[in-house]
């Protein structure tokens, strides 16, 4: 892969993310959507914006089910299960994506520690699951190798 081309692409992706965030008006309809967290470029920044805390402790009680090798980065099935009590939210992060925070699930009454989605991954990297419970953050990660990137370009 041509490295220079990659860098250029990454740059445009980042710039456009900012442009889009500034330009779109209907954002107001969804006041709850954590825009800052979804425009953050690094994992700690995203966590900070999302939960006000960037220190997550590793936990063995979170299981991530994702393929070791994803043939198509556009569709990577990720399932997060956790046995932690009193969970408030589960966030799914693809560490090497231009916008690392992929999804954040706020758990309401009765919801169990299980979410499953298909995500895009630009390149190989860790999939990180961050679980918020009792105002503390717990995390787990799993490496996924991507053979074809799924973030466009």
């Amino acid at each position: 892969m041509n490295l220079k081309r990659r860098i250029v692409l990454k740059g445009t992706a980042a710039a456009s993310a900012i442009g889009v965030a500034g330009l779109l008006a209907p954002r107001a309809v969804l006041a709850a959507w954590p825009e800052a967290a979804f425009t953050a470029k690094t994992v700690p920044e995203a966590l900070e914006a999302l939960t006000g805390n960037s220190a997550a402790s590793e936990s063995g009680d979170i299981k991530i089910k994702a393929p070791d090798i994803a043939e198509n980065g556009a569709v990577v099935p990720v399932t997060v299960t956790t046995s932690i009590e009193g969970i408030q939210s589960i966030s799914v992060i693809a560490a090497n994506n231009p916008v690392p925070l992929v999804a954040s699930y706020n758990m309401g009454e009765g919801a169990l520690g299980f979410v499953s989605t298909r995500i895009k991954m630009g390149k190989s990297g860790d999939v990180v699951a961050v679980v918020k419970a009792g105002d503390k953050l717990y995390s787990a990660s799993k490496g996924v190798k991507v053979t074809i990137g799924g973030c466009g370009g």
Binding site: L101, V102, A103, Y105, N106, M107, V115, R118, K120
Partner: peptide
């Protein structure tokens, strides 16, 4: 459940 998504979802 409320899910907040980015364009990173397939």
């Amino acid at each position: 459940l409320t899910a907040d998504w980015s364009g990173g979802v397939s």
